[in-house]
Design a protein around this nucleic acid. Sequence first.
DNA 1: GGACTGTCTTGACATCCGTCGAAGCGGAGA
DNA 2: TCTCCGCTTCGACGGATGTCAAGACAGTCC
Lengths: 124, 124
Amino acid sequence: MSKQAAPLGLVDLSADAPCCPPLARRRVPAETAAALAPAFKALGDPVRLQLMSMIASADGGEICVCDLTPAFDLTGPTISHHLRTLREAGLVDAERRGTWVYYRARPAALRQLAALLTVEPTRG
Amino acid sequence: MSKQAAPLGLVDLSADAPCCPPLARRRVPAETAAALAPAFKALGDPVRLQLMSMIASADGGEICVCDLTPAFDLTGPTISHHLRTLREAGLVDAERRGTWVYYRARPAALRQLAALLTVEPTRG
DNA sequence: GGACTGTCTTGACATCCGTCGAAGCGGAGA
DNA sequence: TCTCCGCTTCGACGGATGTCAAGACAGTCC
C-alpha cells in the first residue's frame, strides 16, 4: 500500500517528481509552494520534528509506534495524530505487521526539501 | 536593529550556532526540535514559502516590500504579517531605507535547515 | 509645516491545530 | 470464542493562525 504516488490529497513527494531547484536560485511558483508547504508545516511542530528524526534515524530503517509513544508526555491518540500528519505530508510510510505498526522515512521526500533549502556555498 | 543574535524570543539560527547533525543520523533532542520547529512552521505556508523564495533569490540579495506585495492577491497588512513571521523565525532580516523597507535572506539559517534534512546518498 | 505615500500595528473574526477522553478495529493468545 | 492489547478514529475543547479594515507611524516632497 505504498506504491501509488499521491493518493487522495496527499502531497506528491515521490522520488520521480523532478522537483525544485533551490529556493534561493529561482522563485518558487505558486503550485510548487502549495505542494511543498504542507511538508514543511508537518515539520513545524517540535513533537513531529522529533518523531521524524526518531523514524529517520531508526536502526533497520523502521521503528515501532510502541517505541515512539513512551518518548513523549503525550497520549497515544495524540502521537497517532502527529504520525498521521507526517504520513499525509508524504514524509513517512506506515505498515502494520502483526500487532504492531512500523513507520519508516521516505528519504526522497527529505531530499527534496533539503534541495529546496540548499544555498550556494557563499555567492558574492 | 538587526545586530543581536536572537532578540526577545526569536529563534537563534545564527551562523555560529554549531547546530545539528542530520535528522536522519541521530535523534534530534527536544530543545533542538523546539528551536528549529518554528523555522519549518514559518515555511509551512505557501505564501511564506513564495515570499522566502522571492527574497532569497532576489538580485542584489535584497528586495523591496513594494515588489513583494503585488505578487499576491492579499492585502498589505497580510503580507506584512507573513514577513513578520519569517523575521521572527530568523529566516530573513528587514531594513528600512528611506520610504521603502527591504528584506534579505539569512543564508546561514537556510543552511541549517537544509543540513538537518540532509540524507545520506543511499545508505545500505 | 502640511499633504502624500508606503509600511506596520491593532482589533476583530472565522478557521485551523494540538490535545485529550471515549469508542472502534484488528490481531494475538488463552 | 472470548478477552486482552496496540493503534487508530471520533468528538470536543481551548488556543493559535490567516485574513481584512481601520488607524498609526516614518519618510519624502512641495
